[in-house]
Computed example of a mutant assay.
Amino acid sequence: MKVAVIDGQGGGIGKVLVGKLRQEFQETIEILALGTNSVATMMMVKAGANQGATGENAMKYNMNHVDFIIGTISIIIPNSMLGELTPDMAAAIGSSEAIKLLLPINRSNVSVIGTQLEPLPHMAEMLVKHLQKIMSERSESNV
């Protein structure tokens, strides 16, 4: 399974997500760090991503080469992350057939009703458990 983790700005959220994914899945998944800037990409690679790429073209190209896309809800909102996430990036992410696992972190004036706000480490843990469940269901259906 190939998982893209997307982040921008300082890469702190992506770093936490990549670290948690690597801790739980070890080397059984391939993690691709996709940053809106080189600092975000570098932080995710240092946290354990197998590869990293930066910028709009890398983001658009890789959306149809991954099984899962992980990030905050802002990755599907044009001009989020203080303008770092372009409308074309948001469209490519939203249009991808990959399963998207998004955290409801509110930095783009978007509130997802019905979600319970938790600290980032707790949300990362919930995301990993959800990914494990999906991967388990997929492997059972292939038997």
Rank of each mutant, 00 (worst) to 15 (best):
P121H: 07
T115Y: 00
V110P: 04
I93H: 03
I70N: 03
P119H: 06
D88G: 15
G83K: 09
I73T: 11
V110W: 03
R107T: 13
N64Q: 15
A91K: 15
E84S: 06
L85N: 12
L117Q: 13
I70R: 02
I73R: 10
M63L: 11
H65P: 10
P104E: 00
K100L: 07
N64S: 15
H122E: 13
I73E: 14
M81F: 14
K100E: 03
D88I: 05
P119E: 07
E97M: 10
R107I: 14
N106I: 07
N109W: 09
L117G: 09
I99T: 13
L103W: 00
R107C: 12
V112P: 01
S80A: 15
I76P: 02
E97Y: 07
K100C: 08
I105L: 11
I70Y: 02
G71E: 08
M89V: 05
A98M: 10
P121A: 04
P121T: 06
F68M: 11
L102M: 08
N106V: 08
V110Q: 09
N106P: 01
D88K: 14
L85D: 05
L82R: 12
A90W: 01
N64I: 08
T115R: 00
T115D: 00
A98V: 10
T115C: 06
P78L: 11
L85C: 14
I70A: 04
M89N: 03
P104S: 03
A98G: 09
M89E: 02
A98N: 06
I69G: 04
P87F: 11
N62S: 14
S80C: 10
L85K: 10
N79M: 13
L102Y: 01
P87V: 12
G83P: 11
I105T: 02
I105H: 00
T86I: 02
I75A: 03
I73D: 06
I69Y: 09
P87A: 13
S80E: 07
H65L: 15
F68V: 15
V112L: 13
V110A: 04
G83Y: 09
G71H: 07
T72Y: 00
T86K: 04
